[in-house]
Simulated scan of single mutants.
Amino acid sequence: MKITHYTYNAFLVEEGNTRIAIDPGQNLWIFALRSLIPKDKWPGVTHIVITHGDPDHHWQSDRVAAASGAYVVCGIGLTKTENSETLVVDPRGRGLTSWIHLRNLHPLDVGESIELAGVTIEAVRSVHGPIAVPLLGFTLRQKPGPDERVGLGSMAFKITIGNKSVLNLGDSLLMTEWEGLRPTVLMLPIGGGGGNTWTMDVDDAIQAVELIDPQLVIPCHYNVPFLWKKKFAVADDARFKREVEALGKKCRILGPGGVANV
């Protein structure tokens, strides 16, 4: 299994002819506003998994789906039913004002799973925390909820291909019910703290590793570019790696375009 990390929570997981794009969102640095997963990778994608509706996770998902014809899996909270048709929130829409149709869309609720072309995807509970973003001397605050776009449809997913599994937690706070999930690979955010309240910080993420008991850990969604800042959601990944390895687990730090072979 080959795993490529494109910063934020964007990953490409490849095994044989299967190529799973996790959170194909947008780079939010104003000097490089582009797709996190390169466009030349889009046509080969077989599955798309979306953990929630924020731009850095969902912005390009419909375009990747159009280029590839891939199956699309998301949390049920990212969708609505209208005239007997299931719609997903518009990736580039404003708030909750626009919704679109996607072919091969499969929304899941917590505990539900689906098998698609040899890949089993299970929905696991996650909770996106409130955001507090400093902006031009002010702090933009939003709390996820049923009428808010922030964190919409938040869901973690356990993806199983053959005898290997990948658990991606999205932008989540720490959940005790993750105990004993035991994936081959765990992808989790570590960039909370320092005013960032919407994901786990390093300490919470280490607790999550202890609960989940994976073989390999890949930290994500930290030290990312955002607006005019080159480094946002700052975290000490060296400390995280040391403490994960002290638990007897493997840990890989993947920079932009970094690859892990599992």
Rank of each mutant, 00 (worst) to 15 (best):
N83C: 05
V127I: 07
H128Q: 03
I100S: 09
R94T: 14
T86M: 03
L105G: 05
K80F: 11
G95Y: 02
E122P: 05
L116A: 12
G95N: 07
H52C: 03
P107V: 10
H128Y: 05
G118E: 10
L102R: 01
A123L: 10
E112N: 11
G77W: 08
G69F: 12
L96C: 08
G111F: 11
G75I: 02
H101V: 08
A117V: 01
K80E: 14
D54R: 04
G69L: 10
T51W: 02
L78W: 09
P91H: 07
H57T: 02
T120D: 06
D56H: 01
S113R: 14
E82D: 15
H57D: 06
H106D: 05
H101R: 14
L108I: 03
R125I: 14
T86P: 12
E115V: 15
S113W: 12
E82S: 12
W59G: 00
N83H: 15
I100W: 05
N104E: 11
W99I: 07
S61F: 13
H106K: 11
L87M: 12
V72C: 13
A67K: 09
R103K: 14
W59I: 09
H52Y: 00
V119H: 01
L105F: 04
I114E: 12
S61E: 04
N83E: 15
T81V: 15
S68G: 04
G53F: 04
S68E: 11
R103C: 12
A66Y: 13
I76E: 11
A67D: 04
D56I: 00
G111Y: 13
L105Q: 10
R92I: 08
I114T: 10
A65E: 10
N83R: 12
W99R: 14
K80Y: 14
I121N: 10
P55G: 10
E112A: 08
A123T: 00
I50A: 09
V64P: 12
D54Q: 03
Y71I: 01
H128K: 06
E82V: 06
H106G: 01
H106M: 13
Q60R: 07
I114P: 04
V89E: 04
P91G: 11
G53P: 01
T51K: 00
T79M: 09
G111V: 14
V110K: 08
S68F: 09
H52I: 00
P107M: 03
E85I: 06
S126M: 08
G75Y: 07
L87I: 02
E115D: 14
A70S: 14
L108W: 09
P91R: 04
G69Y: 05
E85P: 01
R103I: 04
P55N: 06
G118Q: 09
R103Y: 06
S61R: 08
T79H: 15
V88K: 11
V127M: 07
R125Y: 03
G93K: 05
L78M: 11
H58N: 02
L102G: 06
H57M: 01
D109K: 05
A70Y: 07
L108A: 09
V72H: 07
I50H: 00
S126I: 00
W59F: 13
G77K: 11
V72N: 06
A70I: 15
V124D: 02
L108H: 12
A70E: 10
V89D: 09
G93A: 04
I100K: 07
I100G: 02
A65V: 07
A65T: 05
G95W: 04
V88I: 15
G75W: 09
W99N: 09
V64K: 06
V88L: 10
